[in-house]
Amino acid sequence: MPEQNKPTVSVAAGKGGTGKTLFATSLAVALNEVNPGQVQLIDCDVEEPNADILLHPQITQQTPVNVLVPEVDLDICTRCGQCAKHCQFSAIAVIRDAVLTFPDLCAACGVCAYVCPTGAITEVNRQVGSVAHGSTVQGIKFVQGRLSVGDQRATPVTKATGSQTDDSMITILDAPPGTACPMQETIEFSDYCILVTEPTPFGLANLEDSVATCQRMGIPCGVVINRDQAGWPGVEDYCAGEGIDILLRIPQDRQIAEAYARGETLADAFPQWRDELVRVYNDVVEALLQTATTKVKE
């Protein structure tokens, strides 16, 4: 593998509880075995970060994530209402004599301060979350974003977290579940997205959404089937039809579930899984090289 610019892989799933974090952390542990000290895991699920439960990192640093929100000097303000009129997010209102700001609705766009004719508005920092930095005992570099309790604007925290991606390392991004903005903002940082799904009709419906999102964003994707068991072939048929690689199948297995409950990744609890996980990453790198060469040929 070349020294610089190692591909960044995001791990996403149509809904929570699919085994996304289990897979992402297992992948990181397995890759770190063969590339010690060169693996980074970034937990971008800022609304419910939980990769620490499986990786047990030592956190050494916390950096705040701030956004700029308006603060109104009521002595200068003439209650002209321009700020409220121009705010696209209804995050500032002039209700008779009162001027109210709603920081949890505010997009920190600065328009209100810009249109205020009196200069009554100053923009002040407001903390909406934090990014934790640390590492695991085995030397995996760990980054985890966390949205402040009660805050709804995940975007600035997701972006601050995802932007910690270090191209000189093998980076695994644990994306938030679903296909909404936070998921898209996460996979945007990656070269390839691994979609974890269950082999059920419900899993397939979510998978189709996730695949459509990746395709729209131009991010190549592959599938990991978790809790795989013989039976319904819907996911296989879909992937075959769409030409999407099935990278790995993790069987429905009580021992795996128990290890997970103990806070152990697949790679920690079952050394035999390590080679398979490393193989998944190599397949991804291979797939990316192929698309790159096809692009050059075109």
């Binding site: 209402g81 409220a84 997010f89 209804s90 995050a91 209102a93 002039v94 209700i95 008779r96 109210l100 709603f102 609705l105 709804q152």
Partner: peptide, 19 residues
Amino acid sequence: PGALAGTGAGVAAAQVVAD
């Protein structure tokens, strides 16, 4: 204006009431 808005609908309606 808030009838079709995502978030902030209540604030937008309150602004209409006040205006």
